[in-house]
Design a protein around this nucleic acid. Structure first.
Lengths: 220, 220
DNA sequence: ACCTGAACACCGTTCAAGT
DNA sequence: ACCTGAACACCGTTCAAGT
């Protein structure tokens, strides 16, 4: 038994049973131990959830595609990072929303992301690639809100935080053509999952925007 | 006592004490009644939270600036809608994340937002303004992920879901210049709150993108 | 050193009983 | 018709006691 084993088990448990299902007592059971034993390794459930988020961040860094620093330019760097985060989000759809909902490590940071390591990698990479300080900060903000928005929605599609086996009520899902005629008529296209393509397109559009602001800042 | 009074009290309670603090027993207390009495008006806590989300959506619609249908073109329509949602999000920063975390009303919808009424208003408005079905659906996706990403981060800045009075630990907030030199150096610009300007800029950029895809779809 | 049993203060929710 | 008391099955967490 170890802290790492507890955190890993927690992530597995969330993947399998959803966030609301996670309980110290049930987690203990899965590890063949009483709940009270877990407190040897983590001080509280809150800190356990923080540790799960850390473990997700570490997983992004361990991704082959992600680089610690730019190699083929900042656009390539940000592309790899975005795809790395996306891959982790899709691997752990039920745990990923934690990244957005845990209280931040550095409250003065706008926006206050959890992982300072991640922010450091991001900013240092861009500055290294010739971004001014202001352009790097602006890029950080645009990039994080883009990633968060896309991935939270995409992850919700993959059955995010419905509980364990919430029977999906197909009746309620039926539009009721009278109240929502347009939704009803567009049901075909609306139920298509185009998230991969849209992610690419939006990322491309964002990088274009960043190129412009980068050059504006350099010109000053 | 009435369902409406219970839902309103729940929203007030979340605004004041944070989402984790909301308890049937404490909510009852605030209403001068035992927790069990609430079950006359709502079937469960889960449905109470759904009702809170509905109430937030209703608040957006009641906003003076928001229109039920386009009047001065679709760009004006989407601008008003975005600002209406933002205003509600900033008025209820601790409750707003519920909008993104409740299980969806229509699971087949990609992405599966909670309020079908909202989706209907959005799509019907754009189609009325000459969007093809496909362009309207694409716009729906780009627009929702933009709004969600921006507002969740902005709302997190305004002290979203820290519990009631989590003493903010300024020490932990200190960068520790050694581990995060860039974050530390950029602390000034990073702690400035520029969310309002950035919201405008990103919204503008999105509307430009939508104009392009709209015209592409019309040309087909 | 590591785990457990019992206990405490809380949850959401049900239901018979009170007014 | 509306609320309450008591109860049930759960929580997170502490701590003395066991091995």
């Amino acid at each position: 038994m170890s802290r790492e084993r507890v955190v890993d088990a927690a992530l597995e448990f969330i993947d399998a049973n959803g966030l609301p299902g996670l309980t110290m007592r049930r987690l203990g059971e899965q590890l063949g131990v009483e709940a009270m034993a877990l407190y040897r390794y983590i001080p509280s459930k809150e800190e356990l959830l923080d540790a799960v988020v850390e473990s997700l961040v570490a997983q992004v860094r361990a991704d082959d595609v992600v680089l610690d620093a730019p190699r083929d330019g900042w656009q390539d760097f940000l592309q790899r990072l975005a795809h790395g985060v996306r891959r982790t989000a899709l691997t752990h759809p039920k745990a990923f929303p934690l990244v957005a909902s845990r209280p931040p490590e550095a409250p003065w940071l706008r926006p206050p992301l959890r992982s300072l390591d991640w922010v450091e990698t991001f900013l240092a990479g861009l500055v290294e690639e010739g971004f001014t300080d202001e352009a790097a900060v602006e890029a950080y903000r645009a990039y994080t809100s883009f990633l968060l928005g896309h991935l939270l929605l995409e992850v919700a599609v993959h059955g995010a935080d419905l509980g364990p086996l919430d029977v999906l009520d197909d009746e309620t899902g039926e539009p009721g053509a009278s109240r929502h005629p347009t939704v009803s008529r567009l049901r075909g296209p609306l139920s298509e999952d185009r998230s991969a393509v849209e992610f690419e397109e939006a990322l491309e559009a964002l990088l274009d925007r960043l190129t412009i602001t980068r050059n504006e800042h350099l010109a000053d």
